[in-house]
Design a protein around this nucleic acid. Sequence first.
DNA 1: TATGAATGAGGGTTCATTCAT
DNA 2: GATGAATGAACCCTCATTCAT
Lengths: 187, 187, 187, 187
Amino acid sequence: MAQARGNTRQRIQDVALELFAEQGYEKTSLREIAERLDVTKAALYYHFKTKEDILIGIFEDLTRPMDELIAWGHDQPRTLETKQEILRRYQEALLAAAPLFRFMQENQATVRELSIGLTFKERMIAVIGLIQEPEFSMTDKVRSVSAIFTMHAGTFFMENIEGDAEEKHEAVLEVALDLIGQAHQGA
Amino acid sequence: MAQARGNTRQRIQDVALELFAEQGYEKTSLREIAERLDVTKAALYYHFKTKEDILIGIFEDLTRPMDELIAWGHDQPRTLETKQEILRRYQEALLAAAPLFRFMQENQATVRELSIGLTFKERMIAVIGLIQEPEFSMTDKVRSVSAIFTMHAGTFFMENIEGDAEEKHEAVLEVALDLIGQAHQGA
Amino acid sequence: MAQARGNTRQRIQDVALELFAEQGYEKTSLREIAERLDVTKAALYYHFKTKEDILIGIFEDLTRPMDELIAWGHDQPRTLETKQEILRRYQEALLAAAPLFRFMQENQATVRELSIGLTFKERMIAVIGLIQEPEFSMTDKVRSVSAIFTMHAGTFFMENIEGDAEEKHEAVLEVALDLIGQAHQGA
Amino acid sequence: MAQARGNTRQRIQDVALELFAEQGYEKTSLREIAERLDVTKAALYYHFKTKEDILIGIFEDLTRPMDELIAWGHDQPRTLETKQEILRRYQEALLAAAPLFRFMQENQATVRELSIGLTFKERMIAVIGLIQEPEFSMTDKVRSVSAIFTMHAGTFFMENIEGDAEEKHEAVLEVALDLIGQAHQGA
DNA sequence: TATGAATGAGGGTTCATTCAT
DNA sequence: GATGAATGAACCCTCATTCAT
C-alpha cells in the first residue's frame, strides 16, 4: 500500500496505463486513477498538466525503444537480413510495451485527436518504410504492411486463440519473416 | 432540411455512424447527432431507447451480410476453393460496410464493453474458424488469422498509402489468398 | 387483454390509481400507464387534459361517498349516537376507497400542490368538525382528531401488524368509538 | 452570502431538508438547492454522492436521538411508567426533528423506495414494540399504535387547528398517555 | 508534495405535452 | 377514438480543471 516515496509520477503513469488499456482513455476518469493511488485528483495535477499529458508521458517513455529501432534501421543497408532483424526487434519492442500498444490499437479513434496520434501513425509508417521498397509491386507492398500488422494482430488478438504464448510468438514471427521474404524475392 | 418523413430512424443511424466513425463513440454526443439532423435530442429517444441502442441498430443492419456469409460458409465443403471464396466475399462485405468496420476497429476499447462487443469478436472468430483447421500447424493458424487481418488492415490502414484503390484491394485479396493457400498446402 | 371497448377512460383511471398508490404520483409516468394499457401516451390525452386531470377524475369518483357522508352528518343532531354512526360510515368509506386514501396519505407533499389538495384537507376538517364541538377541552379535541387518525392509521399502517383483517378493523373502530365517547362525556 | 467555510456540508443538509419538507423530495431539484446556497450543482456532488445521499445524511443525523430512545427503552423494565416515559421522550424527539418527520410523513411513497425507507418503518415498529405487549388484546394493540400515531398527527396535522402550540402538545401527550394507560390496564 | 473545495460545461435520459393525421 | 412523431424543459450526474492553502 505505502509504496516508496518520490515515485508518484511513475505510479500515476503505471496505474493510468493499466486503466487506459483496460477501459479505454475516455472511460477512464482522473478520479478513478486518483482513487487507485489513494491520492486526490489535485495531486495528479501537481505532476501532470492535463489528462492528455499523462498519456504523453507514458508514450514518450515506452516508445523510445521503437524510436531507437527506427534510427538504427535507417543506418543499415536495406538488405533482407536487415529487414528480418527489424522485424525481430519490432516484435520485441511490441512485447516489451504490450499494454501501451494494446491501448493504441484499441483507442485509435481517441488517439487520433490527441497530439500523440500523428506521432504514432508516423512511427508505423516509418517502420513500414524500412522494410518496403518503392519499386515493390503493389502486392509486395501489401505484404510488407501485412507483416507488420500480423505482428500486431499476433501479439494481441491471438490471445483468444489457444496455445502456448511462446510458441505463438514464434509462429507469428515466422509468418512475418515469410511475408517480407516473399516481398523481397518478388522484387 | 425537411427530408421526407418516416425515414428519421434511418437518418439517425446514418448520421450517427458517420460521426461515430469520425470522432469515436464516446466523443460523439447525442446533441451533436441531433443538431446535424435538425431535431431535438428527445427525438432521438423516440426512435432509440439509449445511445447504445443506436449503435446496436446500425450494427444489426450492416452486419447481416457477414452473418449470411458465415452461415453460407458453414454449409460448404471445407476445401481451399471454399475458403478462397469466403475471403473474396469477406472483402466485399468489409467494403460494403466500411464505415462500420472502421468504427469497430478504431473503438475496440469502447466496443468491448458494449453488448455488441462480444458479438463482434464472436463473428471474427467464426470467420477465422471457417478458414482454419484444427490440424493446422501453429504457423498455419497464424497465416489464417493473418489473412483476415490483412484484409482489415488493407481495407483501412492502406488508405494512408498511395495508389489506386481498386488496385490496392486486388493486391490485398491476393496476399490473403496467398496466405490461406500456403496454410492449406502446409497441412 | 382485449377489454370491452368504450371504457378506456375508466381503465386509465384504474391503472393510474394502482400505479400512483404503488409508486407515488411523481414517479409514475404517463408512459408507464400507457404501456400497461397497451395504448399510446397520446391516447391518454384524448381522455384527459393533463396528468393531474387523471388524478382529479379518480378523486371525484371515489370521494363522492365521503361527500355524501359529510352532507348526511350535517343534517343530523349532534348527538353521540350520530357521531358513532359517522365513524362507522367513515370507516366503510375509507375501506371502499382504500387505494385512493393510501395514495393521499403517502403523497401528501405532492397532493398539497395539486388542486385536489385543499379539497382533501377541507374534507378531513369537515369530518372532524362533525364529531368535535367548540366547547370541547383541548384534550377532547385531540381525542376527536385522534379518532379519525386512528382509523387512517388502522386502515393502512396496521397491515404491517399480524392478525386477521376483519378483526383488526373491528378493533380499530372500537378504539375510535371509545375516543369519541370519552371526548363526549368529558364535555 | 459568503458564510463561514467548512460548514458547506451542513448548509446543504439544512437547505435540502427545508426544501424537501416544503415541496417534497422529487419536486426539489438539486439546481434549486444549489441556487439557494449560491453554489453550483457540482459542489453538492463534492459533498454527497447522490441526491439520495443528501437525504440519508440528514436522516442519520436527526434520527440518532430516536435510536437512543429505542436503545434506552430496550433496557428498561416493561412497566407502565417506562412506557409513559417513552411517550414523553418520543414526543420530544419528534418535535426536535419536526421538519424531518413532517417530510417522512408527507413523502411516504417516495421514501418507501429509498434506502432509508425500511429503516424508518423499522424504527416505528421498534417504538411500537416497546409499548405494546404480545398478550394485549387486538383492541389494546390498536391503542398502542394509536398512541404513537396520535403523536404524529398531533405534532403535524394539528397545526391546522387553532390553539396555543404548547397547550396542544400537552393535550396530545395526555391522550397518548391515556391510550397506553387503558391498554395496560386492559391486559 | 500534496489536499479541500469548488466550478463550468456538458453528458445521457426522462417527462408531460402537442398536433397533424 | 386513437397514433406517430416530435418538442422543450428539466433532470441527475460526471468530468477535467483550478486555486488557495
